[in-house]
Simulated scan of single mutants.
Amino acid sequence: MPRGLKPHQTCQVNIAGVSGTTGLLFETDEVLLEAPNWTMDGRSLILNGDGKLWRLDVSTAELVQIPLAGVPDLNNDHVLAPDGESIFLSAYDGHIYRAPLVGGQAERVTPDDGFFHFLHGVSPDGSELAFVGIANGDFSQPGRLMTIRSDGGAAARAGARQLDVGAGHCDGPEYSPDGTWLYLNTESFSADSGHAQLARVRVDGTSLEQLLTSSTVDWFPHLSPDGQHATYIRFPSGTQGHPADLPVDVVLVSTGDWATPLHTWPLFGGQGSLNVNSWAPDSERFAFVAYPLATQTED
């Protein structure tokens, strides 16, 4: 079921720069927008909200709904195809769909294979998707790193595979710009439940390595298109999963030194703030969402 704003809560879409700048692009108390993608022409952000898909113009801050057919309510896992003309979408029925970015009829990609499919990455050539598979929709079980052909049907069924990244829950798998690595977060490096850490693994499932060792709970590494920088979201130590409505940090690092933050943006949010890659095509800017609650005072 799509999330909604709480009483006295607003949704703020922000744009930050690698120099440390930040600016509020859009604010609303009507719809809870999540997970911005940046279009390849640099003109718009694509977000979900109320189970629908939205386009937010970066110049005018105009928000318009993208009309889709043939797809259930959407969650916050969506990724633009490399052709710049279509988008892959995860829906609440546990399947992945492909639809025209301008709107129109969506087509299902994933088969009925016993998994819920939570999309996070598309390969640079557009031929493969990386997702988290939850067996039988049983969320008490850890998510598994899986890939599948993006063209659906028999090709997708034949191309589905699971990569071994340990016994712990993993999430957020995303291809590197050169297509050789999948970046993700995983609990496999710790015996402590929920202690997600940043990692990468080669697309053939070899060479799993931890990128950063920290006491915080770190999710969703996103590389810039030029591969020089990355963002991730940092939850407080002891956090289970990636919940909403917490004090969290969006962190910017150089991909040559994940342990040294270049800039940090504290915010109230978590779920929906930085679930998918939100880098601009120029690798100079990225977007994130905050959900502040107004301070309530009595008269």
Rank of each mutant, 00 (worst) to 15 (best):
G84R: 06
L246P: 03
Q162D: 12
Y291T: 08
E128C: 10
Q271L: 14
D77A: 12
D249K: 11
G121T: 08
R157D: 08
G23W: 13
C170T: 12
R108H: 08
G42H: 09
A191N: 15
V276K: 06
S214Y: 01
A135E: 08
L293N: 12
L184M: 10
G49N: 07
T206G: 04
L5Y: 01
T216I: 07
P236D: 11
V132H: 06
I15G: 14
G272I: 04
R144G: 00
I233T: 03
V13L: 02
A196N: 13
G272T: 11
V217Y: 00
T22V: 15
A290K: 12
L5M: 02
E187D: 09
W265E: 03
T28N: 02
F268V: 10
P82V: 15
F88H: 02
G103R: 01
T21K: 05
N48M: 06
D112P: 04
R43H: 14
R149Y: 12
F235V: 09
L74H: 03
G42E: 04
G94T: 14
V18D: 02
R43W: 14
V31M: 15
K6D: 01
I66A: 03
V248S: 11
A135K: 12
V165L: 02
F286D: 00
S215R: 14
G227H: 02
R144H: 11
E174N: 08
D83P: 04
F131K: 14
D249P: 13
F288T: 05
W38Q: 01
S224Y: 06
L208V: 15
W54F: 12
C11E: 11
I134P: 09
S273E: 12
G238T: 10
A155P: 03
S278K: 10
F189N: 01
I46W: 07
L267E: 05
K6C: 06
I66P: 07
E209G: 04
R98S: 11
F116A: 13
L252H: 08
V18F: 04
P142H: 05
N275F: 05
V251G: 00
A199W: 10
I148L: 05
T180D: 15
I15N: 01
I46A: 03
G94E: 00
V18G: 03
H195T: 11
Q228R: 14
G17Q: 07
L223M: 09
N277V: 15
W54H: 12
D218I: 07
L267M: 07
T295E: 06
V79M: 13
R202I: 14
A61W: 10
V31F: 05
A290F: 15
Y183L: 12
N76G: 15
L5D: 08
P247Q: 01
G194Q: 02
T147M: 03
V250D: 03
P243T: 02
Y291N: 13
Q9M: 05
T39E: 11
G133C: 10
L47D: 04
P177N: 06
V79H: 03
F288H: 13
R108M: 01
A290W: 00
D83W: 11
A280M: 01
V102N: 07
I46L: 11
S190F: 06
R55C: 12
G104Q: 07
W38N: 03
D73E: 14
G84L: 02
M146P: 10
A35K: 06
D249S: 12
S237F: 02
